[in-house]
Design a binder for these strands. Structure first.
Lengths: 205, 205
DNA sequence: CGTTCATGATACCGCTCGGTATCATCTCAT
DNA sequence: ATGAGATGATACCGAGCGGTATCATGAACG
């Protein structure tokens, strides 16, 4: 049960690329399929097939589909924060530049051909059952996002940092949806400009 | 379970409320269930059951589930534009007031306890198949929304009406998602203030 | 060597899905 | 009273769903 974490097969010889474990292959295939086709649209059979594994390996590595979904979203969440930190890092002393870098990076990311917005936001809409284990991830992710935006807006010296932070939060979320509905040349193309206008218009303390 | 709504058989007498047709009951039940639980999460059996009808009646009135979904979204779309027109009507000569009224009305709407955001945006995320008949509704709805916002921003005298319109578009979409992820007291609570800041900060021609 | 442990292969479970066929019933306009 | 149209009731279909049991294989490591 639960985490095998079996991790890589090391052969002694240094550089021969070993085949990833069944767990890892299943995990990667699931993330991709869930993101591309939607969570409810993807069955465990197709995940196992796409991973070049069997359904049994899936159920040996994960408790069930719901837990696999939650696990995938947790990975997306951590990936997101790594991206956030890396984007913000060069502007540690300049909150305005940090914010703009975030919006610029998201804008750029969303120009990718197959972008389907935010996997966590999508999951929030798709999974309406409050008991689903993924809901905790959705909540935590969004709370943390709100907290970090508020922090940056405070450092910016915004008089009403909460309002500015929430406004920027709405823009980010909106860009994810809009990227899906109207594509890369839709309103999402103006995400950065929208953020900049809000930031520069916000009264300072 | 349902109410059976066994309801009265209408007598000739003029004002006794007649039971709606099976088609209408099915349509209403479908709209509600799709919105509340998600499209993929709802089966045709439960729709028929909730409508106090049978699956056969469903398939006599609609070509299939996909078409029923598209039909429901078309109704949501028309409902939305009725709401839009009614909100904007009192401010025919004041585009700024019209825009603010829209955002104020959306903010108010989203305070409702069971709000699940925009049914069309949710469908856009849930239905990843390009061939789904609902996709045309999604596209048309969002294009028209963008067009109307741009129109209002032009009337406002904004120097770059497209940017302002897209920014407001992002806010609206973002509020729908945010309402779902962080609730009525999340960032969506500041939707109106965000819009106001953007509108008043936009340079005029 | 032999053991262990991950994985594959395959068959199976009960359930629900979207969709259809058939026949009975009920209401209404003629 | 009768015929027509709408609806209900029920049984069915093949397919896919999430999930499990069983046995075989194969590589790693003492």
């Amino acid at each position: 049960m639960v985490v095998t974490t079996r991790s890589s097969r090391e052969k002694k010889s240094p550089e021969t690329a070993a085949r990833p474990s069944a767990r890892d292959r299943i995990f990667d295939a699931a993330r991709e399929l869930f993101y591309r086709q939607g969570i409810r649209a993807v069955g465990v059979d197709s995940i196992a097939h796409e991973a070049g594994a069997t359904k049994m390996s899936l159920y040996r590595a994960f408790e069930g589909k719901d837990e696999l979904v939650a696990e995938c979203l947790r990975e997306s969440r951590e990936e997101f924060w790594r991206w956030w930190d890396a984007t913000v890092a060069p502007h540690a002393d300049d909150p305005r530049a940090a914010l703009l870098a975030l919006f610029e990076a998201q804008t750029r990311k969303q120009k990718a051909q197959n972008d389907r917005g935010c996997p966590i936001a999508n999951a929030a809409i798709e999974l309406t059952d409050d008991a689903h284990p993924a809901r905790e991830v959705v909540l935590d992710y969004n709370r943390e996002k709100r907290r970090r935006l508020h922090e940056l807006c405070s450092q910016l010296g915004a008089r009403d940092a909460e309002i500015l932070a929430d406004s920027l939060h709405l823009l980010m979320d909106g860009a994810c949806v809009s990227r899906i509905t109207l594509g890369a040349n839709g309103p999402a193309a103006n995400l950065l400009r929208a953020a900049q206008a809000l930031i520069d218009a916000a009264p300072r303390a």
